Simulated assay, not measured.
Amino acid sequence: MTRTAANLRIEGRVQGVGYRWWAVGEAKRLGLSGWARNRKDSSVEILAIGAPDAIAGLERVCAEGPPAARVTAVRRTPAEDDGSQGFHQRETV
């Protein structure tokens, strides 16, 4: 399998609503590696690594988010594969 990497920045009401925990579960369900973390600007950042169609699937579900979230934007940019294995949460930056 060819591994592709993308950085997703999710904006809106996405902190304090379980978004990172939810995103980790969705990424694992899609077979992705990488991480999710809160940013001090109130957004959530995700590094998604895996099959291009799985990353696109994560991008689609991230636009909805968990029930308490109110997503206003999902911005996708290309990223470098950092070698992550599995998917986990990281500390806020």
Rank of each mutant, 00 (worst) to 15 (best):
M1Y: 01
T2Y: 01
R3N: 13
R3Y: 05
A5K: 02
A5I: 08
L8M: 10
L8Y: 01
L8G: 02
I10H: 00
I10T: 02
I10Y: 00
E11S: 15
G12C: 12
G12Y: 04
R13T: 15
R13Q: 13
R13N: 08
R13H: 15
V14K: 00
Q15F: 04
Q15L: 04
G16F: 07
G16A: 10
G16N: 06
V17R: 06
G18K: 04
G18T: 05
Y19S: 01
R20P: 09
R20T: 05
W21M: 06
W22A: 11
W22S: 05
W22Y: 09
W22Q: 07
W22C: 06
A23C: 15
V24G: 07
E26K: 12
A27N: 08
A27R: 04
A27V: 10
A27F: 05
K28I: 13
K28G: 15
K28M: 14
R29F: 08
R29A: 15
L30S: 12
L30Q: 10
G31A: 14
G31L: 10
G31F: 06
L32K: 04
S33Q: 08
G34I: 07
G34Q: 02
W35P: 08
W35C: 10
A36Y: 01
R37N: 03
R37Q: 13
R37C: 14
R39L: 15
R39E: 14
R39H: 11
D41K: 04
D41N: 14
S42C: 10
S42I: 00
S43E: 02
V44D: 03
V44A: 04
E45N: 11
E45I: 12
I46A: 01
I46D: 00
I46K: 00
I46L: 03
L47I: 02
A48R: 04
I49P: 09
I49K: 04
G50T: 08
A51W: 00
A51Q: 12
P52K: 04
A56R: 07
A56C: 02
G57I: 07
G57Q: 06
E59W: 03
R60D: 14
R60K: 13
R60C: 11
V61H: 05
C62K: 03
A63T: 06
E64Y: 09
P66D: 09
P66A: 11
P67L: 03
A68M: 10
A68P: 11
A69F: 07
R70D: 14
R70L: 13
V71H: 00
V71T: 04
V71F: 07
T72M: 08
T72V: 14
A73K: 12
A73M: 08
V74A: 04
V74Q: 06
R75L: 13
R76I: 13
T77A: 13
T77W: 02
P78V: 09
A79V: 04
E80V: 15
D81K: 00
D81A: 11
D82R: 10
D82H: 12
G83W: 05
G83S: 09
G83C: 11
G83P: 11
G83E: 08
S84D: 12
S84Q: 12
S84M: 05
Q85K: 11
Q85E: 14
Q85T: 14
H88P: 00
H88L: 06
H88K: 07
H88M: 07
Q89Y: 00
Q89K: 11
E91R: 06
T92D: 01
V93P: 14
V93Q: 09
